[in-house]
């Protein structure tokens, strides 16, 4: 149990869960991104600061993310499309979950790879009101090499989905309010 080392400090997470039981207000986080239009459908979004544990927090460095659209959309393709960022978020969240759950269950991981595919009918964003704008469905396929049975690996992946913020955000509705300052 104690020999597995996936580089996740599970004890700190368990301690945090315990501490936040009596301090639910400290558990309220606000994540932020700041975006700026460049030209065409190209924008640049920066992420550094967030709020949590009752105070302003900051990542060690600022992350700058560009988004654009591909040439088949008659754009310049300076970067990936916004909807692809959802796949980035989902894959990285589920992978983090697999590593954390494996650590908690004493399972040593050797490699965790996944392929994420989102099926998208683009007629929706082009104005066909009978077609939805977003993904019709998303498929994630994990390939995991670990000291565990197939059943244990399937359980890791299932538990990872159960505790994933991005999986929840994609599978359940969220109130979104967009305003003009």
């Amino acid at each position: 149990m104690t020999t597995a080392d996936n580089g996740v400090n599970v004890q700190a997470l368990l301690d945090a869960r315990e501490a936040l039981k009596n301090a639910p207000e400290a558990a309220q986080f606000t994540w932020r991104a700041t975006s700026k239009w460049q030209k065409g459908v190209h924008s640049t979004t920066t992420v550094q600061n967030f709020f949590g544990l009752g105070q302003e927090q900051s990542h060690k460095t600022e992350t700058v993310l560009d988004a654009d659209h591909p040439e088949v959309f008659a754009a310049e393709d300076n970067a990936i499309t916004p909807i692809e960022y959802l796949l980035v978020g989902l894959a990285s969240c589920l992978t983090a979950g697999v590593a954390s759950v494996a650590q908690n269950r004493g399972i040593q991981l050797r490699s965790v790879e996944s392929v994420v595919e989102g099926n998208h009918d683009i007629r929706g964003i082009l104005g066909d009101t009978d077609v939805r704008n977003g993904y019709n469905d998303i498929k994630v396929t994990f390939t995991i090499d670990a000291d565990a049975s197939k059943q244990e690996i399937e359980a890791l992946v299932a538990q990872s989905q159960k505790r994933s913020a991005v999986f929840d955000a994609l599978t359940n509705p969220t109130n979104v309010s967009v305003e003009v300052a």
């Binding site: 059943q151 359980a155 989905q161 994609l170 599978t171 359940n172 509705p173």
Partner: peptide, 29 residues
């Protein structure tokens, strides 16, 4: 899972497959 009722519409979670997987795995264990 029923996640919300908005504008007279019931909205269901898209995570059905995983609740099946969790229950099937637990049953096998």
């Amino acid at each position: 899972r029923l996640a919300a009722v908005r504008d007279g519409r019931a909205l269901f979670s898209g995570g059905l497959r995983n609740v099946f997987a969790l229950a099937d795995l637990k049953l096998q264990r």
